[in-house]
């Protein structure tokens, strides 16, 4: 039974498939968020060292994870789009970027808000914070490049190139920043020096990151559908879709 990989890569069928999947993902994300927050605030004990401030971890760590994974996934889809010339994969890559940039910003914001009470400063040139900041620049570069090019095909491919070049550079940037940090500051102040994670804290954090996953998938599918409509505006199936609506 040959799996027809490309059945869902045609915009119309993907459009309807995504339409069915979005409610599914958004509902699970809402449920998981509620559960994660409940555990985070009501079940997880007070941390003896950081008292209550550590509860920011429940959104800080998931946001940081999401920012990194979404960049890799974006680069993956961009590479597929470049290699197989499937317009839809590049559309998905374009749809991922804003959500990834949002999570990077959130990771930086919550990191600063957590750093203030713990280390007394909003911003510490810690290796991870700095590479997170550079990751934000990579996202912005990707989106700016795609916005500057009018012809969608060239925008997709150019975005793919910069995303792949970025992905190759992420480990380099991370290690050079780590090396640079130890050069200047001596022992780095590690971000999560909180003691061994109590199980409830860990479960709370994992549920929150799952919730972020579901949320991102739902939002990215919504944005992909919008991009599909934008790019296929004068095709037949869009107009009869429009006729029906």
């Amino acid at each position: 039974m040959a799996i027809n990989w490309f059945k869902y890569s045609s915009p119309p069928s993907f459009y309807s498939l995504a339409g069915k999947m979005i409610p599914l993902f958004s509902i699970t994300s809402i449920v998981l968020f509620a559960l994660g927050l409940y555990i985070g605030f009501f079940v997880a004990p007070t941390d003896f060292q950081q008292s209550e401030a550590y509860r920011i971890i429940f959104i800080h760590v998931p946001a940081a994870w999401m920012s990194m994974f979404l960049y890799l996934i974006m680069a993956g889809w961009a590479a597929i789009g470049l290699a197989f010339n499937t317009r839809l994969s590049s559309m998905i890559a374009t749809a991922i970027a804003p959500t990834g940039a949002m999570f990077t910003f959130l990771a930086l914001w919550t990191g600063a808000f957590w750093g203030k009470p713990m280390w007394g400063t909003w911003w510490v040139w810690d290796a991870r914070l700095t590479s997170e900041l550079i990751l934000l620049f990579l996202y912005i570069g990707f989106m700016a490049l795609q916005a500057a090019i009018d012809d969608p095909r060239r925008a997709d491919k150019a975005g793919a190139v910069i995303a792949l070049v970025g992905v190759v550079n992420i480990p380099i940037i991370y290690f050079s920043v780590k090396w640079w940090n130890t050069l200047h500051q001596g022992a780095t102040v590690s971000l999560t020096q909180s003691p061994k994670m109590a199980t409830t804290m860990l479960t709370g954090m994992l549920i929150m990151s799952l919730a972020c996953w579901m949320y991102s998938i739902a939002v990215i599918l919504m944005r992909t559908r919008t991009i599909i409509l934008e790019r296929e505006r004068n095709t037949m199936w869009v107009s009869d879709l429009q006729g029906a609506a």
Partner: peptide, 29 residues
């Protein structure tokens, strides 16, 4: 525990970003 500003500040921004993103997509559609 005295850190209300920081905790709620970050959660508030988290919420704002999520709602903002959804609103942006909806009016784009």
């Amino acid at each position: 525990g005295g850190y209300g500003f920081y905790v709620w500040g970050s959660y508030l921004v988290f919420l704002l970003c999520i709602i903002g993103e959804i609103v942006l997509i909806i009016n784009r559609r």
